[in-house]
Amino acid sequence: MISSFFFYLFAAVTCLSGLMVVTSRNPVHSVLFLILAFFNAAGLFILLQAEFLAMLLVVVYVGAVAVLFLFVVMMLDINFVELREGFQKYRTLGIVIGIILLAELFTTFFQLAGDSGALPETTGVHNTAQLGRVLYTEYVYLFQLAGLILLVAMIGAIALTLRSRPGVKRQSISDQNSRRREDTVRLAKVRSGEGAEAKEGSH
């Protein structure tokens, strides 16, 4: 009874915050509702006893991706009127995509509902261990390939943003650490009326 209560709670909040993502006026609020939706989806995963996926969803999407997303949205200088016009312009396209996604979801759902043996039997091993075994044995090449794609994306992002402009003062740590006192500090006795430079060499 309690788990079905939580299912309806998480599901309702997910749907509502999903709706608010699209409809709220302020883009920052949209992102915050998106985060709420992610978080409730993680709650649904926990009810399905997929606790590893739930934690991963929170760590990766909520903890990292959405933070950067929020970062960008906050820094943007957004014109709210233009934003509303964009909403009107893309409404038909959005509805079409939504219907397609919903249809796909329903076909999968009815296939699964007809086939009761679709979910694999739990063998008493926790799903973290199960996932690890499958990922690192059967699908190890695909797993490595995914990692490689991410690496390429990362190098690409760095290559696109890294530029060395002349005239920028940047600290080189090895130069800084190799500096000695003798190279930079000189004791000089300065007489009044004469600059320190005039007495160079005499201590």
Partner: peptide, 17 residues
Amino acid sequence: INVGVLYLFAISSLGVY
């Protein structure tokens, strides 16, 4: 819970919000 460490990691990553 079985994923205690991940739970802690997830919660501490939310602190930034």
